[in-house]
């Protein structure tokens, strides 16, 4: 059985995920996740339709109180340091994603130039490698986030194997999707809001 907070957070991030996608998003097996989901549905914290799950207002409230409690239990000072270190990688990742989508910042990349794409993918591979020590530190501080390393690696492997959608595709666990969710988790854990962060231009 997976931690309730992990599953609720994953449902929140994904909107209306299918059960199987939830399992990979929390790095768990379907059978383990299925048990937690059944309990959540029974307690009225989420509802299921056509194999997809979404939060009820009660589920959102429950998630808020769980994350508030979590914030009280972690080493917030160390996490704040980690978040500051994260900022540099975050800016770099965004730049790489924009290069992936746009050439010269304006023209859509139609992915007909393999040389250009290869260069951008190489930058992502490099960033990924440099980011690993910080990611490990973050997982040490907040063990609930332990599913992230495998999800980043899985997305990167698929990009390197030539499946472009795993670079920044939404609605799948692409590198950008996973990154964004991690960022969202860090914003919540450090007691910030996305709107504050947008103001400070760390998140937009």
């Amino acid at each position: 059985m997976s931690a309730e907070i992990q599953i609720l957070q994953a449902i929140r991030f994904k909107g209306r995920p299918a059960g199987a996608d939830l399992a990979s998003a929390v790095g768990s097996s379907w059978s383990a996740v299925a048990v937690s989901l059944r309990l959540l549905v029974e307690s009225g914290r989420c509802v299921e339709a056509d194999g997809c799950y979404r939060l009820t207002p009660a589920g959102r409230d429950r998630l808020s109180s769980l994350t508030a409690a979590e914030r009280g239990s972690i080493d917030r000072e160390s996490l704040a340091d980690a978040y500051e270190r994260f900022d540099k990688y975050n800016s770099e990742l965004k730049r790489i994603v924009v290069d992936w989508q746009l050439k010269d910042g304006v023209k859509q990349n139609d992915h007909t130039d393999p040389g250009y794409d290869a260069k951008v993918i190489a930058q992502l591979v490099e960033l990924h490698a440099e980011f690993q020590p910080l990611l490990a530190d973050i997982v040490d501080l907040v063990p609930r986030l332990n599913h992230y390393p495998a999800r980043f690696k899985s997305a990167l492997d698929k990009v390197r194997a030539g499946t472009h959608a795993w670079f920044a595709g939404p609605l799948i666990d692409s590198y950008h999707t996973v990154w964004f969710e991690l960022h969202e988790d860090l914003i919540g854990l450090t007691g910030r809001t996305r709107i504050d962060e947008a103001e400070a231009r760390r998140a937009e």
Binding site: K94, R95, V98, Q101, L102, A168, P170, E199, A203, E204
Partner: peptide, 16 residues
């Protein structure tokens, strides 16, 4: 209301 060309909204919208 907020954000620039690298914002979540921008990245996702371009993808889809």
């Amino acid at each position: 209301e907020r954000g620039g060309a690298t914002s979540h909204a921008a990245v996702v919208s371009r993808e889809i």
